[in-house]
Design a binder for these strands. Structure first.
Lengths: 209, 209
DNA sequence: TTCTAATTTGAACGATGTTCAGATAGGCAC
DNA sequence: GTGCCTATCTGAACATCGTTCAAATTAGAA
Protein backbone atom coordinates (compact mmCIF):
# COMPACT_ATOMS: atom_id res chain seq x y z
CA UNK A 1 0.00 0.00 0.00
CA UNK A 2 1.12 3.51 -0.67
CA UNK A 3 0.50 5.94 2.13
CA UNK A 4 1.82 9.21 3.45
CA UNK A 5 5.01 8.49 5.29
CA UNK A 6 6.34 10.41 8.26
CA UNK A 7 9.68 8.65 8.51
CA UNK A 8 9.40 6.18 5.70
CA UNK A 9 7.02 3.51 4.41
CA UNK A 10 5.87 1.41 7.28
CA UNK A 11 6.08 -2.35 6.84
CA UNK A 12 2.91 -4.39 7.15
CA UNK A 13 3.84 -5.31 10.68
CA UNK A 14 4.46 -2.20 12.66
CA UNK A 15 6.95 -3.43 15.20
CA UNK A 16 5.77 -1.75 18.39
CA UNK A 17 2.25 -0.60 17.72
CA UNK A 18 1.36 -0.76 21.39
CA UNK A 19 3.74 2.05 22.20
CA UNK A 20 3.01 3.89 18.96
CA UNK A 21 -0.68 3.99 19.82
CA UNK A 22 -0.09 5.37 23.29
CA UNK A 23 2.24 8.01 21.85
CA UNK A 24 -0.29 8.93 19.18
CA UNK A 25 -2.97 9.24 21.84
CA UNK A 26 -0.78 11.56 23.92
CA UNK A 27 -0.04 13.66 20.84
CA UNK A 28 -3.75 13.98 20.07
CA UNK A 29 -4.51 14.75 23.69
CA UNK A 30 -1.98 17.55 23.71
CA UNK A 31 -3.12 18.97 20.38
CA UNK A 32 -6.89 18.60 20.49
CA UNK A 33 -7.96 17.83 24.02
CA UNK A 34 -9.68 14.84 25.61
CA UNK A 35 -12.86 15.05 23.54
CA UNK A 36 -10.91 14.42 20.33
CA UNK A 37 -9.47 11.20 21.71
CA UNK A 38 -11.41 8.58 19.73
CA UNK A 39 -10.03 5.13 19.01
CA UNK A 40 -10.28 5.78 15.30
CA UNK A 41 -8.49 9.10 15.57
CA UNK A 42 -5.67 7.47 17.50
CA UNK A 43 -5.37 4.73 14.87
CA UNK A 44 -5.42 7.39 12.15
CA UNK A 45 -2.69 9.36 13.93
CA UNK A 46 -0.61 6.21 14.19
CA UNK A 47 -1.17 5.54 10.47
CA UNK A 48 -3.03 2.29 10.99
CA UNK A 49 -6.51 0.91 10.37
CA UNK A 50 -9.30 1.32 12.94
CA UNK A 51 -9.22 -2.38 13.75
CA UNK A 52 -5.50 -2.65 14.39
CA UNK A 53 -5.55 -1.43 18.02
CA UNK A 54 -7.72 -4.38 19.00
CA UNK A 55 -4.72 -6.70 18.79
CA UNK A 56 -2.95 -4.63 21.44
CA UNK A 57 -5.78 -3.41 23.68
CA UNK A 58 -9.00 -5.15 24.66
CA UNK A 59 -10.99 -2.01 23.95
CA UNK A 60 -10.81 1.77 24.04
CA UNK A 61 -10.88 1.86 27.83
CA UNK A 62 -7.73 -0.26 27.97
CA UNK A 63 -5.92 2.13 25.63
CA UNK A 64 -6.96 5.06 27.82
CA UNK A 65 -5.77 3.11 30.86
CA UNK A 66 -2.36 2.82 29.24
CA UNK A 67 -2.30 6.56 28.55
CA UNK A 68 -3.38 7.24 32.12
CA UNK A 69 -0.59 5.04 33.44
CA UNK A 70 1.96 7.06 31.51
CA UNK A 71 0.47 10.12 33.21
CA UNK A 72 0.79 8.59 36.66
CA UNK A 73 4.40 7.68 35.92
CA UNK A 74 5.19 11.23 34.82
CA UNK A 75 3.48 12.58 37.91
CA UNK A 76 5.53 10.22 40.06
CA UNK A 77 8.75 11.49 38.54
CA UNK A 78 7.72 15.11 39.03
CA UNK A 79 6.79 14.48 42.64
CA UNK A 80 9.96 12.54 43.39
CA UNK A 81 12.09 15.30 41.94
CA UNK A 82 10.28 17.93 43.99
CA UNK A 83 10.65 15.87 47.14
CA UNK A 84 14.36 15.35 46.60
CA UNK A 85 14.92 19.08 46.34
CA UNK A 86 13.71 19.77 49.88
CA UNK A 87 13.98 18.36 53.38
CA UNK A 88 11.80 17.81 56.41
CA UNK A 89 8.11 18.53 56.45
CA UNK A 90 8.64 21.03 53.64
CA UNK A 91 8.78 17.94 51.44
CA UNK A 92 5.05 17.60 51.90
CA UNK A 93 4.46 21.08 50.55
CA UNK A 94 6.80 20.29 47.67
CA UNK A 95 4.81 17.14 46.88
CA UNK A 96 1.53 19.03 46.97
CA UNK A 97 2.79 21.80 44.72
CA UNK A 98 4.26 19.28 42.31
CA UNK A 99 0.89 17.54 42.16
CA UNK A 100 -1.06 20.71 41.52
CA UNK A 101 1.47 22.01 38.99
CA UNK A 102 1.35 18.73 37.11
CA UNK A 103 -2.42 19.00 36.80
CA UNK A 104 -2.10 22.61 35.71
CA UNK A 105 0.53 21.87 33.10
CA UNK A 106 -1.12 18.72 31.75
CA UNK A 107 -4.85 19.35 32.10
CA UNK A 108 -5.90 16.94 29.35
CA UNK A 109 -3.70 14.15 30.63
CA UNK A 110 -4.79 14.77 34.22
CA UNK A 111 -8.38 14.56 33.03
CA UNK A 112 -7.78 11.20 31.40
CA UNK A 113 -5.97 9.90 34.48
CA UNK A 114 -9.09 10.31 36.59
CA UNK A 115 -11.69 9.72 33.87
CA UNK A 116 -10.43 6.22 33.27
CA UNK A 117 -11.12 5.55 36.94
CA UNK A 118 -14.45 7.38 37.16
CA UNK A 119 -15.82 4.97 34.60
CA UNK A 120 -15.00 2.09 36.90
CA UNK A 121 -15.92 3.78 40.19
CA UNK A 122 -12.59 2.78 41.65
CA UNK A 123 -9.60 4.84 42.71
CA UNK A 124 -6.91 5.02 40.01
CA UNK A 125 -3.96 2.67 40.51
CA UNK A 126 -1.66 5.67 40.51
CA UNK A 127 -3.12 6.98 43.75
CA UNK A 128 -2.75 4.06 46.10
CA UNK A 129 -2.05 1.08 43.88
CA UNK A 130 1.65 0.58 44.47
CA UNK A 131 4.61 1.91 46.39
CA UNK A 132 5.36 4.57 43.78
CA UNK A 133 1.80 5.84 43.67
CA UNK A 134 1.10 9.42 44.63
CA UNK A 135 -0.68 9.09 47.94
CA UNK A 136 1.71 6.37 49.08
CA UNK A 137 4.55 8.80 48.42
CA UNK A 138 2.86 11.29 50.71
CA UNK A 139 2.45 8.69 53.43
CA UNK A 140 6.05 7.56 53.10
CA UNK A 141 7.23 11.12 53.42
CA UNK A 142 5.16 11.56 56.55
CA UNK A 143 6.69 8.43 58.07
CA UNK A 144 10.21 9.50 57.15
CA UNK A 145 9.58 12.70 59.04
CA UNK A 146 8.41 10.93 62.15
CA UNK A 147 4.71 11.35 61.53
CA UNK A 148 3.46 7.81 61.07
CA UNK A 149 -0.22 7.94 60.10
CA UNK A 150 -0.79 4.31 60.99
CA UNK A 151 0.03 5.14 64.59
CA UNK A 152 -2.23 8.16 64.90
CA UNK A 153 -5.70 8.59 63.44
CA UNK A 154 -5.33 12.33 63.75
CA UNK A 155 -2.30 12.24 61.50
CA UNK A 156 -4.00 9.90 59.07
CA UNK A 157 -6.92 12.30 58.78
CA UNK A 158 -4.54 15.20 58.25
CA UNK A 159 -2.90 13.24 55.47
CA UNK A 160 -6.23 12.47 53.85
CA UNK A 161 -7.21 16.11 54.18
CA UNK A 162 -3.98 17.21 52.56
CA UNK A 163 -4.44 14.76 49.72
CA UNK A 164 -8.07 15.71 49.10
CA UNK A 165 -7.19 19.37 49.36
CA UNK A 166 -4.43 19.12 46.79
CA UNK A 167 -6.72 17.24 44.44
CA UNK A 168 -9.49 19.79 44.86
CA UNK A 169 -7.06 22.63 44.27
CA UNK A 170 -5.76 20.88 41.16
CA UNK A 171 -9.29 20.62 39.81
CA UNK A 172 -10.12 24.22 40.56
CA UNK A 173 -6.83 25.35 39.10
CA UNK A 174 -7.73 23.60 35.87
CA UNK A 175 -10.70 25.97 35.68
CA UNK A 176 -8.34 28.92 35.67
CA UNK A 177 -10.10 30.47 38.63
CA UNK A 178 -9.14 32.77 41.50
CA UNK A 179 -7.13 34.95 39.16
CA UNK A 180 -7.13 38.00 41.42
CA UNK A 181 -5.61 35.99 44.25
CA UNK A 182 -2.92 34.59 41.96
CA UNK A 183 -2.03 38.05 40.83
CA UNK A 184 -2.04 39.41 44.35
CA UNK A 185 0.31 36.68 45.55
CA UNK A 186 2.65 37.05 42.62
CA UNK A 187 1.91 34.03 40.47
CA UNK A 188 0.29 30.64 40.43
CA UNK A 189 2.86 28.72 42.42
CA UNK A 190 2.83 31.13 45.38
CA UNK A 191 -0.96 30.93 45.26
CA UNK A 192 -0.87 27.14 45.32
CA UNK A 193 1.54 27.18 48.24
CA UNK A 194 -0.60 29.68 50.14
CA UNK A 195 -3.74 27.62 49.68
CA UNK A 196 -1.98 24.36 50.57
CA UNK A 197 -0.67 25.94 53.75
CA UNK A 198 -4.26 25.97 54.99
CA UNK A 199 -4.73 22.26 54.44
CA UNK A 200 -4.15 19.17 56.50
CA UNK A 201 -0.64 18.67 57.68
CA UNK A 202 1.04 21.09 55.35
CA UNK A 203 3.22 23.26 57.57
CA UNK A 204 1.62 26.61 58.29
CA UNK A 205 3.54 29.87 58.37
CA UNK A 206 1.71 30.99 61.49
CA UNK A 207 -0.53 28.75 63.53
CA UNK A 208 -2.59 30.29 66.29
CA UNK A 209 -5.04 28.40 68.41
CA UNK B 1 -44.25 34.01 24.35
CA UNK B 2 -42.25 33.60 27.49
CA UNK B 3 -44.56 32.41 30.20
CA UNK B 4 -43.83 30.90 33.56
CA UNK B 5 -42.85 27.36 32.91
CA UNK B 6 -42.59 26.11 36.46
CA UNK B 7 -46.25 25.18 36.78
CA UNK B 8 -49.26 26.04 34.69
CA UNK B 9 -48.86 26.58 30.97
CA UNK B 10 -49.38 23.57 28.74
CA UNK B 11 -47.61 24.41 25.52
CA UNK B 12 -48.27 22.08 22.73
CA UNK B 13 -48.28 18.71 21.35
CA UNK B 14 -46.49 16.71 23.92
CA UNK B 15 -46.81 18.94 26.92
CA UNK B 16 -43.75 20.69 28.28
CA UNK B 17 -41.10 18.73 26.42
CA UNK B 18 -38.30 20.92 27.72
CA UNK B 19 -39.02 19.82 31.26
CA UNK B 20 -39.93 16.30 30.20
CA UNK B 21 -36.51 15.88 28.61
CA UNK B 22 -34.65 17.10 31.67
CA UNK B 23 -36.72 14.78 33.85
CA UNK B 24 -36.09 11.87 31.50
CA UNK B 25 -32.37 12.61 31.59
CA UNK B 26 -32.36 12.63 35.39
CA UNK B 27 -34.26 9.36 35.45
CA UNK B 28 -31.75 7.77 33.08
CA UNK B 29 -28.86 9.19 35.07
CA UNK B 30 -30.21 7.70 38.26
CA UNK B 31 -30.96 4.33 36.68
CA UNK B 32 -28.03 3.75 34.34
CA UNK B 33 -25.30 6.24 35.17
CA UNK B 34 -23.68 9.06 33.21
CA UNK B 35 -22.36 6.89 30.38
CA UNK B 36 -25.90 5.89 29.39
CA UNK B 37 -26.93 9.52 28.98
CA UNK B 38 -27.13 9.84 25.20
CA UNK B 39 -29.40 12.32 23.49
CA UNK B 40 -31.19 9.54 21.72
CA UNK B 41 -31.72 7.61 24.93
CA UNK B 42 -33.17 10.67 26.59
CA UNK B 43 -35.53 11.24 23.66
CA UNK B 44 -36.48 7.57 23.79
CA UNK B 45 -37.15 7.78 27.52
CA UNK B 46 -39.34 10.83 26.92
CA UNK B 47 -41.18 8.96 24.17
CA UNK B 48 -40.14 11.28 21.41
CA UNK B 49 -38.09 11.16 18.22
CA UNK B 50 -34.31 11.73 18.26
CA UNK B 51 -34.72 15.07 16.49
CA UNK B 52 -37.35 16.52 18.82
CA UNK B 53 -34.93 17.77 21.52
CA UNK B 54 -33.32 20.09 18.99
CA UNK B 55 -36.35 22.37 19.18
CA UNK B 56 -35.70 22.87 22.88
CA UNK B 57 -31.90 22.66 23.22
CA UNK B 58 -29.19 23.80 20.83
CA UNK B 59 -27.35 20.52 21.23
CA UNK B 60 -26.61 17.76 23.70
CA UNK B 61 -24.35 19.99 25.76
CA UNK B 62 -27.19 22.43 26.36
CA UNK B 63 -29.44 19.62 27.60
CA UNK B 64 -26.71 18.48 29.98
CA UNK B 65 -26.30 22.08 31.12
CA UNK B 66 -29.97 22.12 32.04
CA UNK B 67 -29.58 18.88 33.97
CA UNK B 68 -26.52 20.28 35.71
CA UNK B 69 -28.42 23.42 36.68
CA UNK B 70 -31.07 21.30 38.35
CA UNK B 71 -28.24 19.67 40.27
CA UNK B 72 -26.81 23.02 41.40
CA UNK B 73 -30.28 24.09 42.53
CA UNK B 74 -30.74 20.91 44.55
CA UNK B 75 -27.29 21.37 46.08
CA UNK B 76 -28.18 24.95 46.97
CA UNK B 77 -31.29 23.81 48.79
CA UNK B 78 -29.40 21.12 50.66
CA UNK B 79 -26.69 23.58 51.70
CA UNK B 80 -29.17 26.26 52.75
CA UNK B 81 -31.05 23.76 54.87
CA UNK B 82 -27.87 22.60 56.55
CA UNK B 83 -26.78 26.15 57.22
CA UNK B 84 -30.11 27.11 58.74
CA UNK B 85 -29.86 24.23 61.19
CA UNK B 86 -26.69 25.56 62.83
CA UNK B 87 -25.19 28.82 64.02
CA UNK B 88 -21.84 30.58 64.06
CA UNK B 89 -18.78 29.19 62.40
CA UNK B 90 -20.27 25.71 62.71
CA UNK B 91 -22.35 26.74 59.73
CA UNK B 92 -19.24 26.41 57.60
CA UNK B 93 -18.79 22.81 58.65
CA UNK B 94 -22.47 22.22 57.96
CA UNK B 95 -22.08 23.66 54.47
CA UNK B 96 -19.04 21.51 53.79
CA UNK B 97 -20.70 18.34 54.97
CA UNK B 98 -23.83 19.13 52.98
CA UNK B 99 -21.67 19.58 49.88
CA UNK B 100 -19.81 16.32 50.34
CA UNK B 101 -22.95 14.39 51.24
CA UNK B 102 -24.71 15.70 48.15
CA UNK B 103 -21.88 14.45 45.98
CA UNK B 104 -21.95 11.11 47.78
CA UNK B 105 -25.71 10.69 47.44
CA UNK B 106 -25.91 11.87 43.83
CA UNK B 107 -22.67 10.74 42.25
CA UNK B 108 -23.99 10.65 38.68
CA UNK B 109 -25.59 14.06 38.94
CA UNK B 110 -22.51 15.53 40.62
CA UNK B 111 -20.44 14.11 37.80
CA UNK B 112 -22.61 15.82 35.19
CA UNK B 113 -22.53 19.10 37.12
CA UNK B 114 -18.76 19.34 36.68
CA UNK B 115 -18.46 17.52 33.37
CA UNK B 116 -20.60 20.09 31.63
CA UNK B 117 -18.08 22.69 32.80
CA UNK B 118 -14.93 20.66 32.11
CA UNK B 119 -15.93 20.60 28.46
CA UNK B 120 -15.86 24.39 28.41
CA UNK B 121 -12.86 24.90 30.66
CA UNK B 122 -14.80 27.31 32.80
CA UNK B 123 -16.06 27.10 36.35
CA UNK B 124 -19.68 25.95 36.58
CA UNK B 125 -22.22 28.73 37.11
CA UNK B 126 -23.33 26.98 40.27
CA UNK B 127 -20.01 27.62 41.99
CA UNK B 128 -19.59 31.35 41.69
CA UNK B 129 -22.13 32.43 39.08
CA UNK B 130 -24.78 34.02 41.26
CA UNK B 131 -25.65 34.86 44.84
CA UNK B 132 -27.16 31.43 45.46
CA UNK B 133 -24.15 29.60 44.11
CA UNK B 134 -22.25 27.29 46.40
CA UNK B 135 -18.99 29.15 46.96
CA UNK B 136 -20.81 32.46 47.30
CA UNK B 137 -22.86 30.88 50.06
CA UNK B 138 -19.64 29.97 51.84
CA UNK B 139 -18.33 33.51 51.51
CA UNK B 140 -21.59 35.02 52.72
CA UNK B 141 -21.51 32.76 55.74
CA UNK B 142 -17.98 33.87 56.49
CA UNK B 143 -19.01 37.51 56.29
CA UNK B 144 -22.06 36.96 58.48
CA UNK B 145 -19.73 35.52 61.09
CA UNK B 146 -17.41 38.50 61.05
CA UNK B 147 -14.78 36.91 58.80
CA UNK B 148 -14.90 39.03 55.66
CA UNK B 149 -12.54 37.49 53.11
CA UNK B 150 -12.40 40.65 51.03
CA UNK B 151 -10.76 42.41 53.99
CA UNK B 152 -8.14 39.78 54.68
CA UNK B 153 -6.18 37.78 52.13
CA UNK B 154 -5.44 35.18 54.78
CA UNK B 155 -9.14 34.59 55.27
CA UNK B 156 -9.74 34.50 51.55
CA UNK B 157 -7.09 31.84 51.18
CA UNK B 158 -8.58 29.84 54.01
CA UNK B 159 -11.95 30.03 52.27
CA UNK B 160 -10.46 28.87 48.99
CA UNK B 161 -8.68 26.06 50.81
CA UNK B 162 -11.90 25.01 52.49
CA UNK B 163 -13.75 25.03 49.18
CA UNK B 164 -11.07 23.10 47.33
CA UNK B 165 -10.77 20.67 50.21
CA UNK B 166 -14.48 19.95 50.26
CA UNK B 167 -14.48 19.41 46.52
CA UNK B 168 -11.49 17.09 46.68
CA UNK B 169 -13.07 15.13 49.49
CA UNK B 170 -16.30 14.87 47.51
CA UNK B 171 -14.38 13.43 44.56
CA UNK B 172 -12.47 10.97 46.68
CA UNK B 173 -15.63 9.98 48.50
CA UNK B 174 -17.21 9.12 45.14
CA UNK B 175 -14.47 6.52 44.77
CA UNK B 176 -15.63 4.83 47.95
CA UNK B 177 -12.18 5.04 49.44
CA UNK B 178 -10.74 5.25 52.96
CA UNK B 179 -13.18 2.65 54.20
CA UNK B 180 -11.17 1.69 57.26
CA UNK B 181 -11.16 5.30 58.46
CA UNK B 182 -14.90 5.62 57.94
CA UNK B 183 -15.46 2.49 59.96
CA UNK B 184 -13.10 3.60 62.68
CA UNK B 185 -14.86 6.95 63.02
CA UNK B 186 -18.32 5.42 63.03
CA UNK B 187 -19.67 6.27 59.60
CA UNK B 188 -19.21 8.42 56.57
CA UNK B 189 -20.49 11.68 57.97
CA UNK B 190 -18.19 11.66 61.01
CA UNK B 191 -15.35 10.85 58.63
CA UNK B 192 -16.26 13.78 56.40
CA UNK B 193 -16.43 16.08 59.41
CA UNK B 194 -13.09 14.85 60.70
CA UNK B 195 -11.36 15.42 57.38
CA UNK B 196 -12.97 18.82 56.90
CA UNK B 197 -11.79 19.85 60.35
CA UNK B 198 -8.26 19.74 58.96
CA UNK B 199 -9.06 22.10 56.13
CA UNK B 200 -9.02 25.84 55.77
CA UNK B 201 -11.23 27.71 58.17
CA UNK B 202 -13.38 24.83 59.28
CA UNK B 203 -13.47 24.94 63.05
CA UNK B 204 -11.87 22.00 64.78
CA UNK B 205 -14.30 20.07 66.95
CA UNK B 206 -11.75 19.08 69.60
CA UNK B 207 -9.82 22.18 70.49
CA UNK B 208 -6.50 20.53 70.99
CA UNK B 209 -3.47 22.20 69.60
C1' DT C 1 11.65 -24.59 2.94
C1' DT C 2 6.87 -25.12 5.20
C1' DC C 3 3.92 -24.40 8.84
C1' DT C 4 1.97 -21.61 12.48
C1' DA C 5 0.73 -17.80 15.02
C1' DA C 6 0.68 -12.93 15.33
C1' DT C 7 -0.59 -8.64 12.96
C1' DT C 8 -3.03 -5.77 9.87
C1' DT C 9 -6.71 -4.70 6.74
C1' DG C 10 -11.30 -3.76 4.66
C1' DA C 11 -15.87 -4.30 5.15
C1' DA C 12 -19.55 -4.56 7.96
C1' DC C 13 -22.99 -3.70 12.09
C1' DG C 14 -25.28 -1.01 15.47
C1' DA C 15 -25.33 3.30 17.96
C1' DT C 16 -24.44 8.04 18.35
C1' DG C 17 -24.97 13.52 17.42
C1' DT C 18 -26.88 16.36 14.12
C1' DT C 19 -29.39 18.30 10.02
C1' DC C 20 -33.29 18.90 7.09
C1' DA C 21 -37.48 18.60 4.31
C1' DG C 22 -41.93 17.70 5.28
C1' DA C 23 -45.89 16.46 8.33
C1' DT C 24 -48.87 17.99 12.36
C1' DA C 25 -51.45 20.99 15.03
C1' DG C 26 -52.33 25.04 18.09
C1' DG C 27 -53.39 30.25 17.73
C1' DC C 28 -55.10 34.01 15.24
C1' DA C 29 -57.35 36.87 11.58
C1' DC C 30 -61.22 36.79 8.90
C1' DG D 1 -66.45 27.80 10.21
C1' DT D 2 -61.89 28.90 6.34
C1' DG D 3 -57.33 30.07 5.67
C1' DC D 4 -52.72 31.07 7.21
C1' DC D 5 -48.75 31.38 10.40
C1' DT D 6 -45.59 29.47 13.34
C1' DA D 7 -43.83 26.42 16.67
C1' DT D 8 -43.37 21.69 17.23
C1' DC D 9 -42.55 16.88 15.94
C1' DT D 10 -41.25 12.99 12.72
C1' DG D 11 -38.65 10.13 9.41
C1' DA D 12 -34.87 9.67 6.74
C1' DA D 13 -30.37 10.77 5.98
C1' DC D 14 -25.17 11.69 6.93
C1' DA D 15 -20.77 11.36 9.23
C1' DT D 16 -18.56 9.43 12.99
C1' DC D 17 -17.88 6.29 16.58
C1' DG D 18 -16.67 1.50 18.98
C1' DT D 19 -16.42 -3.08 17.75
C1' DT D 20 -16.31 -7.63 15.24
C1' DC D 21 -14.79 -10.78 11.67
C1' DA D 22 -13.02 -13.14 7.63
C1' DA D 23 -9.33 -12.66 4.74
C1' DA D 24 -4.71 -11.00 3.64
C1' DT D 25 0.05 -10.43 5.10
C1' DT D 26 4.24 -11.42 7.40
C1' DA D 27 7.48 -12.81 11.24
C1' DG D 28 9.48 -16.58 13.38
C1' DA D 29 9.83 -21.42 14.58
C1' DA D 30 10.12 -26.24 12.71
Amino acid sequence: MSEAKTIGPRPYHHGDLTRALVDAARRLLEAEGPSALSLRAVAREAGVSPAAPYHHFKDKAELLDAVANVGWDLLGVQMSTAKAATTGMQQLTALGIAYVCFARENPALYHVMYDAAREKDEMPEGVQGNKDSAYCMVRDTMIENGADPSQDTHLELAGVAAWCGAHGLAEMASFKQFDHLKEQLGGEVPFFEAVLSHMGLFPKPHHDC
